[in-house]
């Protein structure tokens, strides 16, 4: 077999493997927000936070809940704590990326609120989770942020 034909086969196989891995690693099935809420309720720190509604989502993130396919929004009961968790199931990946911009702005606001006096809170802010997986936005500021992230990913990756 000639070199060119071998290279076509090898690079074609490479493309197939790359696409398979990419699709597998980035594939997140549609999971209702309620299902994620059920799993999150078992996580540490969630019970101590208050649940925000659509007006909270609009106020803090400028996101219209009607434009989403569901969301979960928790904020700390204490104004001395930066703890916050937002999970948005967007209509598509592009929308989720737009919401991530809102989450980044929100992170900036939280940082401004705590940067001069809340050293402990700043540690949480520095290790905040702000990411898009498929059509989900995950934004978490807390000592438990990585646990929450793991729980959410566990649900949407099932």
């Amino acid at each position: 077999m000639k070199k060119s034909r071998i290279m076509v086969i090898l690079s074609g196989l490479g493309l197939a493997v790359f696409m398979a891995v990419l699709i597998w690693s980035q594939y997140y099935p549609d999971v209702p927000a309620e299902q994620i809420a059920g799993e999150l309720a078992k996580q540490p720190g969630i019970a101590e936070m208050r649940t925000e509604d659509a007006s909270g989502l609009r106020r803090y993130y400028s996101i219209d809940s009607a434009e989403t396919e569901g969301f979960l929004f928790f904020r700390s009961n204490s104004i001395m704590s930066a703890d916050e968790l937002l999970v948005v199931r967007a209509k598509d990946h592009e929308d989720a990326l737009l919401y991530m911009e809102s989450a980044r702005k929100r992170l900036g606001e939280i940082t401004e609120n705590f940067e001069n006096y809340g050293a402990e809170e700043m540690t949480k802010i520095d290790s905040a989770v702000c990411e898009v997986r498929g059509k989900y936005l995950i934004f978490a500021v807390s000592d438990n942020a990585s646990d929450w992230e793991e729980a959410i990913l566990g649900e949407i990756k099932k």
Binding site: L22, I23, Q26, D92, H93, G134
Partner: peptide, 9 residues
């Protein structure tokens, strides 16, 4: 139907 939409950029 309710097939999932792939979310790759």
């Amino acid at each position: 139907t309710d097939f999932a939409v792939p979310g790759l950029p």
